[in-house]
Design a binder for these strands. Sequence first.
DNA 1: TGATCGCATCGACAGCCATCTATGCATGAG
DNA 2: CTCATGCATAGATGGCTGTCGATGCGATCA
Lengths: 116, 116
Amino acid sequence: MNQTRQPLPLADACCAPLLRAPLSVGQAASLAGILKALADPTRLRLVSMVAAHDGDEACVCELTDPLGLTQPTISHHLKVLVDAGILSRDKRGKWAYYALVPGALDALSAVLSTSR
Amino acid sequence: MNQTRQPLPLADACCAPLLRAPLSVGQAASLAGILKALADPTRLRLVSMVAAHDGDEACVCELTDPLGLTQPTISHHLKVLVDAGILSRDKRGKWAYYALVPGALDALSAVLSTSR
DNA sequence: TGATCGCATCGACAGCCATCTATGCATGAG
DNA sequence: CTCATGCATAGATGGCTGTCGATGCGATCA
């Protein structure tokens, strides 16, 4: 739905002094974009299922049944997570394998932490 | 708009093994609720402005002008953040002072971290 | 080549949400 | 008591979003 999204929204929001000084408009928008991608129960479960899966990756067919949603809906959520830079997509043969982008969640965690 | 919200949504989602095992439906819903409260540029800026303010608290009148939104809109966003357990409200005289709930963002940060 | 499978995209629709104006409700000043 | 101030709430509205069924498209298999 939003095709003109920046490839790595976290790049602008990363290391923002969330609790030191007021966020700029751009920083707030970037950070909100990533948080919005995660702020959905289905997408959170998708992330945790991918992360906990053997080999740290999973194809769509393995994610559809446990969530009780249709395949197009799962594909939609996965696309949102990929666009936000949280998951990566690797198509091999007929299957599309999704995996966590290393460091993506850690960067988000660091931004929200008050102790550093 | 949602009056029947749990007082501390993070209590259920906290310490959830986001990256170890698939999230339960309840854990995902709780965590998504907190993330949804933060996943808005205006609310992110509000949080950072409150945290960076002298005394770590601020009243509504000090937050309205810099954001360029009307006072009812700011009050609405602040209510969302209070309901999510991120900010606290303390009414003293005619003014309502908002402050960060200690540890709220740190708990969220810990859930998202992959290193522990 | 034709059939099947895995997945993405499209179009539609209902529900949610951010924002506004208008209004109510305390509190403090005079 | 009366009025002004600071804030919350109510109601309305336009836009966004999660979900679906239908369909398209490449890869594999017979």
